[in-house]
Amino acid sequence: MSSDSTVVSKDLEQEVKEVGSAIEHIPEEIAQGAAHGDDPMADVVEWVGSHLADSYSWHLPGGLNIPLDSLPMGFSLHALMLVIASLIISFLFVVVYRKNDRVPTGITNLLETLVVFVRDEIAIPNVNHVEDGKKLTPLLCTFFFLILTLNLMGLIPLFVTATANPGVTLGLATITFAVIVFGGIIKSGPVGFIKAFIPHGVPLPILFILTPLEMLGVVIKTAALTIRLFANLLAGHIVVYVFVGLIVVFGVFGTPAFFLALGINLLEVLVAFIQAYVFTLLSAMFIGQVWHPDH
């Protein structure tokens, strides 16, 4: 087994040099890993994992390495991505967006279209209340633009995908949860808030089962928001990395996988928008269900 694997790894180094120019720095890392590992598949899996997991350092091209472990409170690479995304969004909306133009043009027009979309297509119809929809638009816009920026940053080689981290998505989903619960209590009072969970036209005994279930529903919805976002982003990136890894495992015969990886990456652009939209839409719906129940 061990003699086979050294042959494989020598072949591998040769293959890697052939496709190396196309795929930047990735093959060297794998070649290094493969040189002291005995199974290229396991190395690929570890490589995929190390590229998706959060860490305390930011690897940049040219061997540049920015350490983050000296920062307090476990400030990590994904947190840094959140900060960068926030700065990009703040720059776009505070500096670039010309708020006093009577007729918006250029980037202002693009951003305004998205803000109006969030307000008119997501917030107002799904919160089911015009005034509350307008009030929640800044929050939902922040969700939408932060998630969208993080998703798109994950597709740019320099950055990593913070939204593939369940900690980040749980953080975002708990904000929706807090808005649902505390906003609901402030809006309709503790009694009115509980009334929102009591279904209409159901016999009294069954209410004792259904009402706690409905309340549990809010927690489940929050968990669903968390898992939906990170799982979608993580899965897409794993597929891209695995396709690139196939080139390592199968050598020259694996090169068509490059195009598959490219195709999936393009799909990821679509997913980046869809997941940002879905998270925002569902947040608006869940808030609306408790703030303004149908009955």
């Binding site: 959060d54 990590s76 703040s90 929050l139 922040t142 900690g167 953080g171």
Partner: peptide, 25 residues
């Protein structure tokens, strides 16, 4: 890094971003 700390960082950064955007944008 642990996911739990990431939740807190997400809250902090989101709150800051939301405040800035709400106030100035």
């Amino acid at each position: 890094p642990s996911g739990g700390k990431m939740v807190i960082w997400t809250w902090i950064i989101f709150a800051a971003l939301f405040f800035v955007l709400w106030k100035f944008a």
